[in-house]
């Protein structure tokens, strides 16, 4: 359904005066989302997870340049096609509740999405009522403006927005932080159900453990690149990339032990492997060139030492 190959995103910035510079924030990013599947995207903060979502929707700012190939249902995603598809065939559950229209009551906001998806006004209203009920939002919530509801409620409204749309591809950007654990589980379960109905779902999250409950595959991002794509069942013993293993160990329910050091900043990327300065497996070969994404034990990994 969605196929991303060698994606690169860079921004043109003003440095000093009229000097411009290019800041490359995503390099060689690969990802595939099939119909009926949930793909979780996890990884370092600032590794380009949200930018990927924005690239797929064609809502990057004007100073961004996109390279590589983005295809949806086999056809390239051009800016014009993005504009046509988003909200209809591709829906985003955004990360920030600031994405709601502050001047519109939340009920009509969600209903409008359902109508844009092709439902009649009456059918859309029924769908909104049903979805609000499902997410424990009182019917009176429909008449409230975004500033009158709590952060958790606003998040549930955002999820409802994607649920009532008829989109084939749903991208959820951090759908669960701030939610009560039961509602977080319910939200993820609903995303799973959307996939089981034949849609493709991409969930961007920090909560690896929650993601594993619903995901078929997990893509791990680091410094703007895909370092590993693993089956959910590969966690935790069969992980291939040292960063994925480190991420797993650092969870509070596991060892809570971090690897030292920081993700390289976009203006100082090393020529070799992006994780090389923090990697326990480092050898001089790692610094020579960027490792290619290769197939190891049924998954993909960007590391020359993984086996």
């Amino acid at each position: 359904m969605l196929s991303i190959r060698q994606l690169g995103v860079s921004f043109t910035q003003y440095d000093q005066g009229l000097n411009q510079r290019q800041l490359t924030v995503i390099t060689d990013l690969d990802l595939e989302v099939q119909a009926g599947e949930v793909v979780a995207v996890v990884g370092a903060s600032g590794s380009g997870k949200s930018l990927l979502a924005h690239a797929v929707l064609g809502i990057l700012p004007d100073n961004a340049q996109v390279t590589g190939s983005l295809r949806f249902k086999g056809q390239p995603l051009t800016p014009a096609r993005c504009a046509q598809l988003r909200g209809q065939d591709i829906a985003l559950i955004p990360q920030s509740v600031g994405y709601l229209d502050p001047l519109m009551k939340v009920g009509p906001q969600v209903r409008r999405v359902a109508q844009l998806g092709g439902l009649s006004k009456a059918a859309a209203q029924t769908a909104v009522g049903r979805t609000f009920n499902r997410y424990d939002l009182l019917p009176s919530t429909q008449g409230r403006y975004p500033f009158q509801i709590s952060g958790g409620m606003a998040r549930r409204v955002l999820v409802a927005t994607a649920v009532v749309s008829q989109a084939d591809l749903v991208i959820a950007d951090e759908p669960t932080p701030g939610l009560h654990p039961e509602i977080a589980t319910e939200t993820l379960t609903h995303l799973r159900e959307l996939a089981d109905e034949g849609r493709g779902v991409m969930v961007i999250t920090h909560d690896i453990e929650a993601a594993l409950q619903i995901a078929d595959r997990v893509a791990v991002f680091y410094a703007g690149t895909t370092v590993e794509i693993a089956a959910a069942a590969d966690f935790p013993e069969r992980l291939r990339h040292p960063y994925t293993q480190a991420l797993w160990r650092s969870l509070p329910q596991n060892d809570f032990i971090p690897v030292p050091g920081h993700q390289p900043s976009p203006d100082q990327l090393p020529t070799g492997c992006l994780f090389s300065d923090r990697c326990p497996w480092f050898t001089p070969d790692c610094a020579a060139e960027r490792p290619a994404l290769r197939s190891v034990r049924g998954g993909l990994v960007r590391c020359i030492h993984a086996d």
Binding site: V42, G43, A44, S45, S47, E174, P177, G178, L179, H180, P181, H206, I208, A246, L247, W248, S250, L251, P252, F256, I257, P258, V259, P260
Partner: peptide, 30 residues
């Protein structure tokens, strides 16, 4: 809003400081 590794790094330092200087710490979270 941080990844697990950065989270563990930050808490490692804060907890070490709190313990060394006997600060009181209230952690709010879900």
């Amino acid at each position: 809003m941080l990844d697990a590794n950065t989270q563990a790094q930050i808490w490692q330092t804060v907890l070490a400081y709190v313990q060394q200087h006997q600060l009181g710490l209230l952690v709010i979270g879900h």
